[in-house]
């Protein structure tokens, strides 16, 4: 069990995500997005299981316009796996938990 899902924004993205000492799974979301609400509990569940070795974070695109643009995000939820500041893989849309676990297996 880790620290819960971390909220990040444009100003903290570099220090918290790109320079993190662990891999990070970031959920790009917004409050008006239904599928984002559906996937939020899944992120919490994954954090409870894998929170010791992976950082789980979420970035509200409504408050942070620059980061989504940098990663060419055109749909939410988009979930990106970062390691050493680089994108390992990403998924778009509300996907089942097993699908995200497959993603995590790439670095575990």
């Amino acid at each position: 069990m880790g620290q819960g899902v971390l909220d990040v924004d444009d100003s903290s993205f570099e220090s918290e995500i790109l320079k993190a000492d662990k891999p990070v799974l970031v959920d790009f979301w917004a409050p008006w997005c239904g599928p984002c609400k559906a996937i939020a509990p899944v992120m919490n569940q994954l954090e409870e299981t894998y929170g010791d070795s992976i950082i789980f974070a979420r970035c509200n695109v409504d408050h942070s316009p620059n980061t989504p643009t940098k990663y060419s995000i055109r749909a939410i939820p988009t979930i990106i796996l970062f390691q050493d500041g680089k994108v390992v893989d990403q998924v778009v849309g509300a996907v089942p938990k097993s699908h995200l676990e497959e993603l995590l297996k790439k670095i575990l």
Partner: peptide
Amino acid sequence: VGRGVSYCVDCD
């Protein structure tokens, strides 16, 4: 998908 194709106007 996610590069211009969307299934959710409200979201995207």
